[in-house]
């Protein structure tokens, strides 16, 4: 499958400050793409450039095979981190207005909005003003106005902030369904557990530079340390530990184990394999616990950012 969005060598400066330094990111069609990075890394600048709110100083952006142009506004749905709607405007009117700004006809807008309002069971709010709704309710409306024009590309900046766990779950489900229906989703967040849950691919931006990009599983493999957490029931714990230290890097570990025994983190050295470790352990006692420590998105994020600084 090709890329829906190709960002090539994008540079953006504000006066003396470089917000994006030669950033290239490729976003595969039909994926949920995590755009990660610490605060002030340049994520919002990049998102604004994709939305054509601002323009890149140099570099190119290709959306679905075409150079980004004003026509593409209708192909993109954007939910900014700072949510906002006209407070004193009625929900329905407001949604109709925003839908028409995205190029829908009046009738299309009405039909689509009814579909979503019914789906979220909020049709009763149609004539309420935004200022009368709770924050979570307003968020739902905001989500609807982001997706109603069925854009090819959806950009969510911290989509779960402000939602309670139940509604966050609902929104997550909707986002994944939109992906399954063919939309490509850029997902910008600090919440790494939702990255694990949602993202197929990620890119990490830090200090205006892209420092990491690719399939989440691939990246996890790259960041793999070949460390195993083991639990062994044995009478000669000291002896086993000493023997392990000869062949592997060993450090103490702390986890819950049913029967007390030796608990260690064992890192394989070059040339050694997991099977070697396992067969050694089985020869020494009863193996209670044997798990590879795979880095999660959070570890990767922290490691990559620390390495960059």
């Amino acid at each position: 499958m090709g890329n829906l969005l190709e960002i090539n060598n994008v540079v953006k400066t504000y006066g003396d400050f470089t917000a994006l330094n030669n950033v290239s990111i490729h976003i595969p069609k039909g994926s949920v793409f995590g755009l990660l990075g610490p605060n002030g890394a340049g994520k919002t600048s990049l998102i604004r450039i994709i939305n054509q709110i601002t323009m890149a100083d140099s570099g190119s952006i290709i959306l679905d095979g075409e150079e980004l142009n004003p026509k593409h506004i209708e192909d993109i749905g954007y939910m900014p981190e700072e949510r906002g709607l006209y407070k004193s405007m009625k929900v329905g009117e407001q949604a109709m207005y925003l839908a028409q700004l995205k190029g829908l006809s009046k009738k299309e807008a009405k039909d689509r909005l009814h579909y979503w309002f019914e789906k979220f069971d909020i049709l009763a709010w149609w004539n309420k003003k935004i200022e009368e709704l709770s924050k979570g309710m307003a968020q739902k409306v905001q989500f609807i106005v982001t997706v109603m024009h069925q854009p090819k590309l959806l950009i969510f900046d911290e989509p779960f902030s402000g939602f309670d766990p139940i509604n966050a779950q609902l929104i997550a489900k909707e986002i994944l369904q939109l992906r399954d229906e063919g939309a490509t989703i850029i997902f910008s967040t600090h919440r790494m557990e939702s990255v694990e849950e949602m993202c197929d691919d990620i890119a990490l931006i830090d200090k205006s530079n892209k420092i990491l990009e690719g399939n989440l599983e691939d990246i996890k493999r790259q960041f793999r340390t070949h460390t195993f957490q083991i639990g062994l029931e044995t009478a000669k714990a000291k002896e086993v530990e000493a023997k392990l230290k000869e062949r592997f890097d060993v450090s103490p570990a702390d986890f819950k184990l049913l029967n007390e025994g030796l608990k260690l983190n064992v890192k394989l050295k070059n040339g050694s394999s997991a099977n070697e470790l396992l067969s050694f352990l089985t020869s020494q006692g009863q193996v209670q616990h044997f798990v590879e420590l795979v880095p999660d998105a959070n570890d990767i994020f922290i490691q990559a950012v620390n390495k960059n600084s």
């Binding site: 939305n51 506004i73 006209y86």
Partner: peptide, 14 residues
């Protein structure tokens, strides 16, 4: 008003 209600970013993306 548009700025403080933060709708501005939604609007200028359209």
């Amino acid at each position: 008003e548009e700025k403080t209600s933060r709708i501005i970013e939604v609007i200028v993306s359209s």
